[in-house]
Amino acid sequence: MRRINRDEQALIKLTLNGTPVAARAEPRLLFSDFLRHQLGATGTHVGCEHGVCGCCTVMVDGVATRSCLMLAVQAEGREVRTVEALAGPELELNDLQRAFRENHALQCGFCTPGILMSFTDYLARENADVSAEAVRDVLGGHICRCTGYQGIVDAIVETAKGSMTP
């Protein structure tokens, strides 16, 4: 049994964007804070810290998850992907990121990493419904205070269409 006392700084190992990493956390440390402060992965943003805004969304074992609703200790041994994983080795944007830029799907960019990670999961699913309506439904898990959402929907639908043409 894994047991960690409240004031104990346990060593938490996991895979972050393909690289094994390890850092210390006490049980109450949120995974979002662990990523940002212990691992320095500050691409993941924190807004509400109670599961409402979606900007802390990352992928854990392949599925989009709110990192503020998870403890660092719960991520132990998991495979984690954050927004830092999306661009290529020369920092060239991937298709989804490029579509966001071209469709004015961001202004301040605070919500963007979370939305990108949600749709990195969603668009990779077999038979994902990529109608604007279904995209809006998934986007319902995020709050954007800048764009009015239309550009985001356009960017996602465009990306989905692009990846379906051979």
Binding site: M1, R2, R3, I4, N5, R6, D7, E26, P27, R28, L30, D33, E49, H50, L71, V73
Partner: peptide, 13 residues
């Protein structure tokens, strides 16, 4: 906001 401190247990069974 952050949780108050607690102990954590992950039983195997």
């Amino acid at each position: 906001m952050k949780p108050r401190a607690f102990d954590y247990a992950r039983p195997e069974t």
